[in-house]
Design a protein around this nucleic acid. Structure first.
Length: 465
RNA sequence: GGUGGGGUGGCAGAGCGGUUGAAUGCGCCGGUCUUGAAAACCGGUAGAGGGCUUUGCUCUCUCGCGGGUUCGAAUCCCGCCCCCACCGCCA
């Protein structure tokens, strides 16, 4: 969430930020509620201060009188009761006053809090302003010697490509029909070498980020409390995207939600903690199952492995000191890890600077990594796909937006508690990353060459099919 | 799932409903002493929000979380969450 002090000081900054991201939030209403709340709080606190003072003054007197009352009879009793009543008059009036404040605050706080959570983090000034992914800006690209996306598949490999959909069917790597039978649309079964290939990619990615780059590998819950989803910034905006396990309907005290990314478990791990500055940065990686409802994506990428409800992902997160330069450096470092993965896999890729409209509420900056997928894109005159870039990774820089929500802080050299900065980045998302691998490494005879970097994870095998 | 016990500061551990935001011990920080260190002694040691004459003073909230009783709740009542023990079930 954003810093309310900054919002009060410069509302236009946040209004602009929301507008640039195409997110509707009534900031004027939030400021109004905030002002009301602060006024009420001041009144409530003044009342309580007096109540405490009074309690110390006349509390012991009341206690003494009540003790006397127990033994007293007749006239004494009436007199004692009268003085008791007189003594209690002021605190009773105060009590009513404070309760009135409490009620009004209780009315205001839920909408105030909800609006506060909805205010997006403004994008950094160097993020291009735009409304849709079409306005994202390519930053750089790379391709191996043996495949230049600019030239088209045939001139690179000497034959026309099949799409990954055709390849997995021919080679029996995926069973879509039975996946759908069991679990509905966008479900699939990886079979045999399809599963082996996926495991090879995941393990290679985890070894890279954990083994070579010092990210601690973790296994974290994928079924979490709502607080984790709100804390990591996926709720309330992305509530529709998450599967909701309504355990409260069968008597449990709280519901659970299936995470859409391992980032949730890795980031929520340290919620409500105050870390030592010396512990930072925290570098974590996980391989986890991810669940997405894909609400609003009906009809988009329905065929194949591109957009599915359940998938496996190696994710890296980093929690560091609240220093812009440092978190920018880590962003580059994490992107560098992805780059080395894709170079080892020899997959043509490009980095894309996402525009404001593509960032989502929580990010100040986001770089997408796209791989060349020969089976995507428009068809040519012969009805063959011409290929297109497809998003496989996404690297976000969040400043302290996420850590504020998670209440995740550290104590700096001066002893102050400061919200940490956080970053996250895909290392490898499966089965999506299998698409460029299968399509680029396909051979004229319909087989797939196993990328060299994956062979150690595939019992040394050189081809599938 | 059943039964029982329990959640208090960095940790351990007290706390008849009334100056208890919290004794005591440990740890940590500063000081005295010392050639240096240890010991001993003295002092200080939670977080959040607000106000001001803004590096200090002051107010409010926080004893798992939420609600209730009360003039007043760490203390009494209710709900929830979590932990521990034993039993049952189980990869």
């Amino acid at each position: 969430m954003i810093d309310l002090k900054r919002l009060r000081a410069d509302p236009d900054h946040f209004k602009r930020g929301a507008r640039d991201k195409g997110i509707e939030v009534d900031i004027d209403r939030l400021l109004e509620l905030d002002g009301q709340r602060r006024t009420l709080l001041a009144g409530q606190e003044a009342g309580r201060a007096e109540q405490k003072k009074l309690g110390k003054e006349i509390g012991p007197q009341i206690g003494a009188l009540k003790r006397q009352l127990k033994e007293a009879t007749g006239k004494d009793r009436t007199a004692l009761q009268d003085s008791l009543r007189a003594l209690e008059q002021r605190p009773l009036a105060l009590k009513a006053e404070i309760q009135a404040y409490d009620e009004r605050i209780a009315e205001i706080e839920p909408p105030w809090r909800h609006l506060w959570l909805e205010v997006p983090q403004p994008a950094d000034p160097d993020v291009p302003i735009g409304g849709s992914p079409a306005e994202n800006v390519e930053v750089r690209r790379w391709h191996p010697d043996w495949f230049d996306p600019a030239r088209g598949f045939r001139s690179n490999k000497g034959f026309d490509p099949r799409t990954h959909l055709e390849l997995v069917k021919d080679l029996k790597l995926v069973d879509f029909e039975r996946g759908v039978k069991m679990a509905g649309t966008r479900q699939y079964v990886l079979t045999g070498d399809g599963m082996r290939l996926q495991q090879a990619v995941l393990r290679m990615a985890l070894d890279l980020v954990a083994g070579e780059h010092g990210f601690t590998p973790m296994s974290v819950p994928v079924l979490v409390r709502e607080e984790c989803m709100v804390g990591t910034g996926f709720f309330p905006a992305g509530r529709d995207q998450a599967y909701h396990v309504a355990e409260s309907q069968r008597g449990a005290g709280h519901d659970l939600f299936l995470v859409g990314t391992g980032e949730v478990g890795l980031m929520a791990l340290h919620a409500d903690e105050i870390l030592d500055e010396a512990q930072l940065p925290l570098k974590y990686a996980t391989v986890s199952t991810c669940f997405r409802r894909e609400a609003g994506a009906a009809g988009r990428d329905t065929a194949g492995l591109f957009r599915v409800h359940q998938f496996e992902k190696v994710e890296q997160v980093l929690i560091c000191r609240a220093d812009e330069a440092e978190s920018r450096r880590w962003h580059e470092t994490m992107l560098g890890i992805v780059e080395s993965l894709l170079k080892r896999l020899e997959l043509p890729y490009r980095f894309v600077q996402c525009c404001t409209g593509d960032l989502g509420p929580k990010n100040a900056d986001m770089i997408d990594v796209e791989c060349w997928m020969p089976g995507r894109g428009d068809d040519d005159a012969d009805g063959r796909p011409t290929g297109a870039w497809g998003e496989t990774h996404s690297a976000s820089r969040l400043y302290d937006y996420q850590c504020r929500r998670l209440n995740l802080r550290y104590r700096d050299a001066g002893g102050k508690t400061v919200f940490c900065h956080s970053l996250n980045n895909t290392v490898a998302a499966c089965p999506r990353i299998l698409i460029p691998i299968l399509e680029l490494y396909q051979n004229a005879d319909g087989s797939i060459t196993v990328p060299e970097a994956l062979r150690p994870y595939m019992d040394g095998r050189e081809r599938i099919g």
